[in-house]
Computed example of a mutant assay.
Amino acid sequence: MPRANLTSAAVITAAADLADRSGFDELALSALARHLGVQTASLYSHVRDRSALLEGVHQLALAELADAIAVAIGGRSGRDALTAFAGTHRDYARRCPGRWTALQRPATAATVASEPAGRVAALTLAMLRGYELPEAELVHATRLLGATVNGFLALEANGAFAHREPATEVSWQRALEALDTVFRSWPTEGKS
């Protein structure tokens, strides 16, 4: 990428691409500068420091995931929406491993308050509202959903399921069926 085309957005995107190839934890300004063919110092006019770079990758990943979720769940509800929602996460984790790792790191206050984070949260709640869960229970359902999907994907990525039959895909479908059953039978009264 020629220096003239460097913008903050281009630097963050290049960093995300590099994280996907080399690993999120290996992302450094010096490596990014080499990747872009510029001096490290020239990156500082686009990102404050490594922390800001990592935060930018996190927010980019949230924005990309939100876009993909919106397309996947549009016009769907219940189990169809749940399957599309979870499948989008799984596909993103596989296609973009560095970006996915960024999503697994603690978010800064700025990232939590960002528009992309708000979109992912709103889409998650919209999908869960298709189950007619009480509003007061949505946070609990969201946590269960996140723990199940992220836990499964982490174990799958680490090869924890690779040594036993049946195929991992069967377990993935069972997990989604179980979540669907739980969300359809969620307690509606007397819980806080």
Results as ranks from 00 to 15, higher is better:
1 M>C: 09
3 R>T: 11
4 A>S: 15
5 N>L: 12
9 A>C: 00
14 A>F: 10
15 A>H: 06
17 D>E: 15
20 D>R: 04
29 L>C: 12
31 A>F: 07
34 R>Q: 13
35 H>Q: 15
40 T>F: 00
43 L>S: 08
47 V>Y: 02
53 L>E: 02
59 Q>H: 00
61 A>S: 15
61 A>W: 08
62 L>R: 01
63 A>V: 00
69 I>W: 01
75 G>S: 05
75 G>L: 06
76 R>K: 15
76 R>D: 02
77 S>C: 00
79 R>Q: 15
79 R>C: 13
82 L>C: 11
82 L>K: 07
84 A>Q: 01
90 R>I: 03
94 R>V: 13
96 C>R: 15
97 P>H: 04
98 G>K: 08
100 W>E: 02
104 Q>H: 03
107 A>S: 14
118 G>N: 03
119 R>W: 02
123 L>D: 06
126 A>E: 14
126 A>T: 13
130 G>L: 06
133 L>K: 09
134 P>K: 00
136 A>F: 05
136 A>C: 04
138 L>G: 12
141 A>E: 11
143 R>K: 11
145 L>V: 09
145 L>W: 05
145 L>D: 07
145 L>Q: 08
153 L>F: 01
154 A>Q: 10
156 E>R: 15
157 A>Q: 13
158 N>K: 12
160 A>W: 12
160 A>S: 14
163 H>K: 08
164 R>I: 03
168 T>V: 15
172 W>S: 09
174 R>G: 11
175 A>C: 10
176 L>H: 11
181 T>C: 02
183 F>R: 00
185 S>Y: 00
185 S>D: 12
